[in-house]
Protein backbone atom coordinates (compact mmCIF):
# COMPACT_ATOMS: atom_id res chain seq x y z
CA UNK A 1 0.00 0.00 0.00
CA UNK A 2 1.00 3.53 -0.68
CA UNK A 3 0.79 4.32 2.96
CA UNK A 4 3.52 1.82 3.70
CA UNK A 5 5.91 3.38 1.26
CA UNK A 6 5.27 6.75 2.78
CA UNK A 7 5.97 5.47 6.25
CA UNK A 8 9.25 3.87 5.18
CA UNK A 9 10.25 7.12 3.66
CA UNK A 10 9.46 8.93 6.85
CA UNK A 11 11.48 6.44 8.96
CA UNK A 12 14.41 6.89 6.70
CA UNK A 13 14.10 10.60 7.13
CA UNK A 14 14.15 10.22 10.91
CA UNK A 15 17.30 8.14 10.76
CA UNK A 16 19.20 10.97 9.16
CA UNK A 17 21.90 12.18 11.58
CA UNK A 18 20.70 15.11 13.65
CA UNK A 19 22.32 18.44 13.03
CA UNK A 20 23.22 19.23 16.62
CA UNK A 21 23.82 16.62 19.28
CA UNK A 22 22.83 18.91 22.07
CA UNK A 23 19.30 20.19 22.56
CA UNK A 24 19.61 21.80 25.94
CA UNK A 25 22.05 21.84 28.85
CA UNK A 26 21.63 22.28 32.59
CA UNK A 27 24.16 23.36 35.15
CA UNK A 28 23.29 22.21 38.67
CA UNK A 29 23.70 24.62 41.57
CA UNK A 30 23.36 24.52 45.36
CA UNK A 31 23.24 28.22 45.96
CA UNK A 32 20.99 29.43 43.19
CA UNK A 33 21.57 33.15 43.49
CA UNK A 34 25.31 32.67 43.79
CA UNK A 35 25.36 30.59 40.60
CA UNK A 36 23.23 33.09 38.69
CA UNK A 37 25.51 35.92 39.82
CA UNK A 38 28.51 33.93 38.69
CA UNK A 39 27.31 33.32 35.14
CA UNK A 40 25.78 36.76 34.81
CA UNK A 41 29.10 38.18 35.73
CA UNK A 42 31.40 36.09 33.56
CA UNK A 43 29.21 36.31 30.46
CA UNK A 44 28.02 39.81 31.24
CA UNK A 45 24.41 38.75 30.79
CA UNK A 46 21.20 39.06 32.74
CA UNK A 47 19.55 35.71 33.17
CA UNK A 48 15.83 35.36 33.48
CA UNK A 49 14.81 33.33 36.52
CA UNK A 50 11.86 31.19 37.29
CA UNK A 51 10.77 29.55 40.53
CA UNK A 52 8.66 26.46 40.46
CA UNK A 53 7.97 24.57 43.66
CA UNK A 54 11.19 23.00 44.84
CA UNK A 55 13.11 24.17 41.79
CA UNK A 56 14.70 27.41 40.73
CA UNK A 57 15.93 27.98 37.21
CA UNK A 58 17.80 30.66 35.33
CA UNK A 59 18.12 30.68 31.56
CA UNK A 60 21.07 31.49 29.37
CA UNK A 61 19.72 34.05 26.93
CA UNK A 62 20.33 32.12 23.68
CA UNK A 63 18.29 33.83 21.03
CA UNK A 64 18.90 31.12 18.49
CA UNK A 65 20.93 27.95 18.71
CA UNK A 66 21.35 25.85 21.79
CA UNK A 67 20.41 27.21 25.18
CA UNK A 68 20.54 25.96 28.71
CA UNK A 69 19.84 26.83 32.31
CA UNK A 70 21.08 26.82 35.87
CA UNK A 71 18.93 24.54 37.99
CA UNK A 72 18.67 24.32 41.76
CA UNK A 73 16.51 21.74 43.43
CA UNK A 74 16.29 18.07 44.37
CA UNK A 75 18.74 15.86 42.47
CA UNK A 76 20.47 18.80 40.91
CA UNK A 77 23.96 18.15 42.22
CA UNK A 78 27.09 19.98 41.09
CA UNK A 79 30.26 18.00 40.47
CA UNK A 80 33.53 17.67 38.71
CA UNK A 81 32.97 14.24 37.26
CA UNK A 82 30.73 13.23 34.41
CA UNK A 83 30.16 14.92 31.08
CA UNK A 84 32.16 18.00 30.24
CA UNK A 85 30.29 20.88 28.77
CA UNK A 86 32.13 23.32 26.46
CA UNK A 87 30.63 26.76 26.68
CA UNK A 88 30.98 29.03 23.73
CA UNK A 89 33.23 31.86 24.88
CA UNK A 90 33.00 33.97 21.76
CA UNK A 91 36.00 35.27 19.92
CA UNK A 92 38.60 35.09 22.67
CA UNK A 93 37.83 32.97 25.72
CA UNK A 94 40.17 34.97 27.95
CA UNK A 95 37.62 37.75 28.04
CA UNK A 96 35.34 35.43 30.02
CA UNK A 97 37.97 33.34 31.74
CA UNK A 98 39.53 36.43 33.27
CA UNK A 99 36.32 37.08 35.18
CA UNK A 100 36.02 33.56 36.60
CA UNK A 101 38.08 33.91 39.75
CA UNK A 102 36.71 37.30 40.71
CA UNK A 103 33.23 35.85 40.37
CA UNK A 104 34.02 33.04 42.83
CA UNK A 105 35.21 30.29 40.50
CA UNK A 106 38.59 28.74 39.89
CA UNK A 107 40.64 28.20 36.78
CA UNK A 108 41.86 24.65 36.37
CA UNK A 109 43.49 25.11 32.94
CA UNK A 110 44.33 28.43 31.40
CA UNK A 111 43.72 29.11 27.73
CA UNK A 112 45.22 26.22 25.83
CA UNK A 113 45.62 25.77 22.10
CA UNK A 114 43.83 22.75 20.68
CA UNK A 115 45.09 23.29 17.12
CA UNK A 116 45.01 26.29 14.85
CA UNK A 117 41.84 25.14 13.15
CA UNK A 118 39.91 24.13 16.26
CA UNK A 119 40.96 27.02 18.41
CA UNK A 120 41.48 27.23 22.18
CA UNK A 121 39.93 25.81 25.31
CA UNK A 122 40.19 26.30 29.06
CA UNK A 123 38.78 24.51 32.08
CA UNK A 124 37.26 26.12 35.16
CA UNK A 125 35.26 25.23 38.23
CA UNK A 126 32.22 27.40 38.80
CA UNK A 127 31.01 28.83 42.09
CA UNK A 128 29.05 25.64 42.75
CA UNK A 129 31.85 23.18 42.15
CA UNK A 130 30.94 22.20 38.56
CA UNK A 131 33.74 21.56 36.12
CA UNK A 132 33.19 23.21 32.71
CA UNK A 133 35.20 24.13 29.64
CA UNK A 134 35.30 27.31 27.60
CA UNK A 135 35.95 27.32 23.88
CA UNK A 136 36.91 30.05 21.44
CA UNK A 137 38.42 30.23 18.03
CA UNK A 138 41.11 32.81 18.69
Amino acid sequence: MGGTTQKKKKDKQEEQPVKDFISWFEIPAINFQQAVDFYNRIFNIDMETQFDGNYAMAFFPAEKGIGGAIVTGPNSIPGIIGPLLYLNAGKDLNRILNRVEAAGGRIVMTKTLINPESGHFAIFIDSEGNKLALHSKD
Binding site: I80, L84, Y86, N88, V108, M109, T112, I114, N115, E117, S118, G119, F121, I123, I125, K131, A133, H135, K137
Partner: peptide
Amino acid sequence: RQKTVSSMGSMGNNAKKKITNLK
Protein backbone atom coordinates in the same frame (compact mmCIF):
# COMPACT_ATOMS: atom_id res chain seq x y z
CA ARG B 1 43.95 15.52 37.57
CA GLN B 2 41.11 17.87 36.70
CA LYS B 3 43.07 19.12 33.72
CA THR B 4 42.32 17.29 30.55
CA VAL B 5 43.04 17.26 26.86
CA SER B 6 40.37 18.37 24.54
CA SER B 7 39.02 15.86 22.12
CA MET B 8 38.08 18.72 19.91
CA GLY B 9 40.14 18.71 16.78
CA SER B 10 41.11 15.08 17.04
CA MET B 11 38.32 13.80 14.87
CA GLY B 12 38.55 13.36 11.10
CA ASN B 13 37.98 16.12 8.55
CA ASN B 14 34.26 16.09 9.03
CA ALA B 15 34.70 17.05 12.61
CA LYS B 16 36.89 19.97 11.69
CA LYS B 17 34.08 21.29 9.59
CA LYS B 18 31.79 21.01 12.53
CA ILE B 19 34.10 22.94 14.68
CA THR B 20 34.35 25.60 12.08
CA ASN B 21 30.59 25.85 12.37
CA LEU B 22 30.86 26.17 16.08
CA LYS B 23 32.69 29.39 15.69
